[in-house]
Nucleic acid binder design. Structure first.
Length: 321
DNA sequence: TAACTATACGCAAGGTGGGT
DNA sequence: ACCCACCTTGCGTATAGTTA
């Protein structure tokens, strides 16, 4: 965009030009904009200088627009309406809002949350489209800072001063396996039992690209104990992971709740982490946004809505499985 | 003569650039 | 970084010029 040229043009003059075009009179245009008639005359003079066209010629007591002025009259209302709409954005009305909001959510989380959110959106903000992704081109922090993302749902950690977080919920890690898996009915699971089987590493969090060398929290804990698991498959494709767990003896690290319908469909059992594996019982998740958006009406509305939807989702998932 | 536009001039606010 | 003189801009009032 040619900002240098725009900076030389006093955009306020265009407002006066619109008044002149509507009134076809310097005096009446001045009254409309609460300036004196000479002031409006000077404004017209500046418009003539800046646009290099007389814009209006006098015929008796009326102003006759030049072809250039008529041409401007065709485009100006749309332009000024656009500016008005832009500056009025804070008068956020969900019912009439049109636009897209980008949110990064880990897929296993989005799977449960998205239906709750979209159901609410279709009722209260039909013009708002949610763009949910579970992978990013750069880091979550960078994409929130650059505006590529509006929100992210992620593990609670140190995000820096630019980002603000709100607690959402906590997830409990668990081991998933097919229902007929030998470990599914075993009384008390030991870490050694798990390590006897291959693993599907489905990347639970927001990530760039996954590979076998990608260390999950589970891998790091094992490494501290001088242990290692066998990775049969590393994927960021949830359906691929589920299908593989269902049709093999592979295990998968996931969470205690979540994917309730899918687990039923795939006939998958879930067991708690073994007692001899040091682990964090509850892992906190937060809603993250850039400080820049914390006063935006649409962001405030949407974050409140997401918090409410997560609460509703938690209630549903807490039901016995 | 009334109604309108254009111009001259003064004031105030803000910007600019040089000096310290 | 701050000060100060000067310039620019945008407004006002007063008034001249134009036209029906």
């Amino acid at each position: 965009m040619n900002l240098q040229r725009l900076s030389r043009l006093d955009l306020n003059l265009l407002v006066a030009l619109q008044a002149l075009l509507e009134e076809r009179s310097v005096t009446r245009a001045a009254e409309r904009l609460f300036v004196t008639q000479p002031a409006m005359s000077r404004i017209l003079q500046r418009l003539r200088d800046q646009l290099g066209d007389p814009l209006f010629t006098r015929r008796g007591n009326t102003l006759v627009a030049t072809p250039r002025a008529e041409e401007l009259a065709r485009h100006l209302p749309q332009l000024l309406d656009g500016i008005l709409a832009m500056v009025a954005l804070d008068d956020f009305d969900p019912a009439t809002f049109e636009g897209e909001v980008a949110v990064a959510i880990p897929e296993f989380f989005a799977f449960e949350l998205a239906p709750h959110i979209t159901e609410r959106l279709s009722r209260t903000a039909p013009g708002l489209t949610l763009a949910i992704s579970s992978d990013t081109d750069s880091s979550v922090e960078e994409e929130l800072a650059s505006g590529v993302l509006d929100f992210a749902i992620d593990l609670d950690r140190e995000f820096g001063d630019e980002l603000v977080t709100q607690p959402l919920t906590q997830v409990t890690p668990a081991i998933w396996m097919r229902s007929e898996h030998p470990l599914a009915s075993k009384e008390e699971l030991k870490l050694a039992d798990l390590l006897a089987y291959p693993f599907v590493q489905y990347y639970l969090l927001i990530a760039k690209r996954v590979s076998a060398s990608t260390s999950a929290r589970f891998d790091r804990t094992l490494a501290e104990m001088g242990l290692k698991r066998r990775k049969a498959l590393v994927t960021n494709q949830l359906m691929t992971a589920m299908e593989t767990v269902q049709r093999s003896n592979a295990l998968m690290v996931a969470t205690q709740y979540g994917l309730s319908h899918e687990r039923e469909f795939f006939s998958i059992a879930q067991r708690p982490f073994p007692a001899d594996l040091p682990h964090q019982g509850n892992i906190p998740f937060v809603l993250v946004q850039h400080r820049r958006t914390s006063h935006s009406a649409v962001h405030s509305w949407l974050s409140a809505m997401i918090l409410q939807a997560v609460k509703e989702m938690d209630k549903e998932l807490a039901k016995p499985w």
